[in-house]
Amino acid sequence: MSATQVWLAIAGMALITSITRALFLMGGERMILPERVQRALRYAPAAALVAVVVPDLLTTPNGLSIAFSNHALYASLCGLAWFLWRRGMLGTIVVGMIAFTALRLFA
């Protein structure tokens, strides 16, 4: 991706932030979002995040892999386990990075 394209992407994302955050402030004060639409708007972000994260974690330079050599995957599973247990975001990152480093150095 060229530098110009990266800057275009950044500008586009800034525009998206502005539009999504101000959408109904632009003149929809009488607008009532139906419950079902609201719920759909809530699935979308989580769905988009997993659709990015899961393939990203499973992809290695040699294609999709759940082998133990895919350190990022197993480190993230450690982070996930920590989060399910302790519910702390910083802890999730720290545990994940420690696991990743341990795998990188010793596995």
Partner: peptide, 30 residues
């Protein structure tokens, strides 16, 4: 997505999807 060299529209679409929750907030502030 940047790292995987995906096209611009994929990146913007993803950003938009992740930001969709703000649409609800904008309706709440209106």
């Amino acid at each position: 997505l940047f790292a995987a060299k995906l096209p611009l529209w994929t990146i913007l679409l993803t950003a938009a999807m992740v930001n969709l929750r703000f649409v609800i907030f904008s309706a709440g502030l209106a």
